[in-house]
Design a binder for these strands. Structure first.
Lengths: 229, 229, 229, 229
DNA sequence: TCCTAAGCGAGACGGTACGTCGTGTCTTCTG
DNA sequence: CAGAAGACACGACGTACCGTCTCGCTTAGGA
């Protein structure tokens, strides 16, 4: 149960060690137990039912220990979510040579995650972020932003290769919004599944949306431009 | 805010009343007070802070009166949301002759609503609907579904007129998901505003997505179909 | 000295009813359960171990219900102690015709009580009253004072009858302090028991202390000896 | 805050030292800091508010250091109380030649102490001793007993000299109980002060109680009167 | 001069009681 | 009967102290 963790004198840093760590060091075992308990309970009972007391009890940890390191259950979940991707970093950055396949692969993997462990947690956090700008910012930084960035880079690579064209009708940002927007919308409203088929449909739709010749081209494009003035 | 209490046919109609309502009739004043208090508080303090006790106190109503008619705060909010559209029925069904303009008008109005009174309520409800199938179904029926239907009919009208084409790459349903998905995604993650400009961009993007000649046409469509098998 | 308990329409008072009692009336069952639980637990585990949570749990009552009516455990105990004498009012006011016998009877009964149910409670309260003037005042009023008063009246009756003399060396107040002082001292330090024999000794000593001529020797001494047999 | 640390016979005596003390010797500075902090805090905030954590923090000492040497706060206080008398040993053993004066002097000094530093501590300890036989025994041994013994010896000296008579009505033990009983009773219930006047009254009352002939006697009574002026 | 041992400040740990608040149910009186 | 008032049993909240446990650092005696 003992894991090194020892930050002090790690890698020989003899300079800016900080304020010298005194007292009993933080228990990595307790930290992990809390994070896993939170994820487990959130998945089992739902975000709303998730409770600081419940987390502490499930983790076999004192309540104070939870509050000492995470002021709210949101903080616990954000830390869990921040650590999850490290478990399978490979599937997060697909590069098959085809934009469409890369997009589809990324979305397939992302959808899997949301259907599985993280779904209820992330949806609950997002809902709480309504009316809580700070939480919103942190989610943006740790969860939403990174995922957006990955998709965006795939699309930019496609533009560079000439597979895609960032047109007047749809910026890359809007394209990213498209993919994840549909995902969130369906996760929340549940009017349709978030599955592999959706990943394929979205990959195709994005390709069309960013196709150079611009289907609705003439009138439509003019209209859009007219509207925006 | 004073309402005579019993506007309904109390005492009077003894004809085909049905099961004969005995005792004191339900107070319309109390009902309205509860609904308005709920909307007000949800908007002011957020969905999570909304409380049955808070609603009752704010409405100047006994707690039992709230529980008698609405088992949960979700029920209260759903009833409020169900009544709101009746206040401005005109803007909900635009018909300018141009699909793009109709879409833009509808989205502009919808975005206004979500930025205003209903935003926090609907997001909170959606989040609660995670893991509550019944609530999910009711939301689908009373809030999500109707909005989808309006947009869908506008698009179908466009297809009938020949302005749009439901292509292999993007069904009408996916197009509807696109519009509302982006809206929800931005409402939740706040990485970009939900404003009139977005309405215009989405109208243009939808037009392109549903354009007949299909930019990425061939390979893409085939790919999508291939994937679905 | 509240006995009737039932303030509402007690004894037919149809005039100044007060502010009209609204809402669910207080549960007498819960009240009694709390009082008895407190007494029970205090006796079993000691005053220090007595806990608001413990009282509530033992009484099968919500914690809030305890706090609603008694801000602290001291309040609970004071109310219990205030009600106890009513159970056996007869032995509290002995009047045998002999001062010595009255004193002995009163002390015997008082010692019984302190050895039994009330001992630990009262001692704990007294200790808490150190440094809490308000608690001190209330204890004085509801517990200490009344007991002092009973003994004082017995002694005053003796003075009126000529059996005793309030002398220059010892006021009645000091005599009362004597009796109860020895009791408390032994209860606390436990160097000697607080039993019937002590009651007899104290009755004799008080008689001597308040003998006018100082010759408690003769009759009083004989009386004491007679009693001890 | 630096104190030589090792006042005790360290190093010197290698004769019957026992198991030879290894490791870092106990810090006398820490010991004193704890004792003084405990006394200070108990006097300032009261016995109930006294806390092991509070003592450690106030003393600038680790919590473990307190627990290592004193299992409970009672132990800390008992050790403090055991050291206090050594500061003024002279007034503890009055011998003026007159029993009454000796008694009055002893009580006057004792009352001073209880009004001052030790009051709240001793009362709290006594209250805790209810239901804790071991604590009771230790208090008896270290605090209560010694004080009783001093008074008892004064009274015995009086009996030897013929000033007093241990009569059938009141043993010396009861007389001692009388004096300290009244003190404790007043300390706890606060119905009257514990001051010099009480010391004089008690000295007079004891004299009368232990007068052989029962006399509020001639000389004694006169003496009492003389004293009160 | 190291080695072993124990005391020390610090502070994290698993617990538990605190007093408050919201839950959903109930029980009274008034309309 | 509906409604308002509010008491009820329940349980989560975040805080404080409990007594124990690890840390790194003295500070001694014995090797």
């Amino acid at each position: 149960m003992e894991i090194p963790e020892n930050s002090s004198k790690a890698s020989g840093g003899e300079s800016g060690e900080g304020p010298a760590p005194r007292g009993r060091p933080r228990s990595e075992a307790a930290r992990r137990a809390v994070l896993e308990a939170a994820l487990e309970l959130c998945q089992r009972d739902g975000y709303q039912e998730l409770t600081m007391k419940g987390i502490a009890d499930e983790a076999g940890v004192g309540r104070q220990t939870v509050y000492r390191w995470w002021p709210t259950k949101q903080d616990v979940l954000i830390e869990v979510l921040g650590e999850l991707p490290h478990r399978t970093p490979d599937r997060l950055f697909p590069d098959t040579g085809s934009v469409r396949d890369d997009v589809e692969e990324l979305l397939t993997y992302t959808f899997e995650l949301t259907r599985g462990v993280t779904g209820r947690a992330v949806v609950g956090l997002m809902a709480d972020a309504q009316g809580d700008a700070e939480l919103s910012r942190r989610l943006q930084e740790s969860v939403i932003g990174p995922r957006r960035e990955v998709l965006r880079q795939i699309l930019e690579r496609g533009v560079r290769r000439g597979e895609l064209t960032e047109g007047a009708d749809a910026s890359l940002d809007l394209a990213v919004d498209f993919a994840f927007g549909v995902m969130w919308y369906r996760l929340l409203s549940r009017h349709a599944p978030v599955d592999d088929e959706l990943a394929a449909e979205l990959a195709a739709a994005l390709e069309k949306l960013l196709s150079g010749d611009g289907g609705a081209g003439d009138g439509a494009g003019a209209g859009a431009r007219r509207h925006r003035q």
